[in-house]
Design a protein around this nucleic acid. Structure first.
Lengths: 143, 143
DNA sequence: CGCCATCATGAAAGTGACATTCATTGGCAT
DNA sequence: ATGCCAATGAATGTCACTTTCATGATGGCG
């Protein structure tokens, strides 16, 4: 899985004529072994401890590259930060976002997707993508 | 409807000990007679032509007040601007957002809501609110 | 291996959309 | 009419990106 994504990224880079660098390797490793919904700042800080020589701009640009390469996706959860989540081939899911601790869970629901298609059809609307986020308190924070 | 919201806002203001001003009246009128999903900038520009003496900050602060009073709701559709939509008592709806022309349609689907409740329940998650947005091409832009 | 056209990097400066400050203005209860 | 306190708007601050630019790496080629 990590290996597969590294290959996808490597292929994307060579196909685009872009170069492999130490920084990009480090950032990719760190991203792949992280929480699934990291902000630029969070990843940057995580890297900083071990690699103080990597700049914010590089993390920023590299995450954009991951998104272009299709191994990450930009997401907004309304906390003012752009988060990047891991993308798995053809998979789609929605989110449960805890408003207290910030924890993000994922879920899938085929029936909801189907109902969305129906709504769109009935309006003559052509779906490109959608987002469904449920905000509230996670099981832990309810206690 | 417009009248009802004016009353809600007036009540809110007097209850909070806040004052009625020319600017707030003008902004409220303009907001109520607008498109349902206006950004601060859009409302500000709309006002500027007739009332060049109203500042951006006043529009910004007044929209926040509308939200506090419960007659407007802040929304993000990923275009980098906060939009304010009209709120009607107890009503909830989701959105179809056209990625070409920016047009925003609303829809309601009781079944989807119910399924969301089920998902949340099964995770021990307590829902505060949710957002569902479907992005794509509206009927007009498909032509 | 060494060259060098390109691409990548990081510090710093720029952007855009809010958000706040502060001197001045203006409601409104008395 | 008067004074207190909220409201206004120009200006400034903030924050999270986003871009610039001088310097440093990379990797195809001879």
């Amino acid at each position: 899985m990590k290996r597969a994504k590294k290959k996808v990224f490597a292929d994307f880079m060579s196909q685009k004529g872009l170069k492999s660098t130490k920084q990009r390797d480090i950032i990719l490793d760190s991203f792949l072994s992280s929480d699934r919904h990291l902000s630029i700042e969070e990843l940057y800080l995580k890297l900083r401890s071990k690699h103080p020589n990597i700049g914010y701009a590089t993390v920023y640009r590299t995450l954009k590259l991951f998104a272009e390469a299709g191994i990450a996706r930009e997401m907004q959860f309304g906390d003012g930060q752009t988060r990047y989540e891991h993308v798995s081939e053809g998979e789609h899911h929605d989110h449960l976002v805890c408003t207290r601790c910030g924890h993000i869970e994922e879920f899938e629901n085929e029936t909801i997707e189907k109902l969305q298609d129906e709504v769109a059809d009935s309006r003559g609307f052509l779906i490109e993508r959608h987002r469904l986020e449920i905000y509230g308190l996670c099981a832990n924070c309810r206690k």
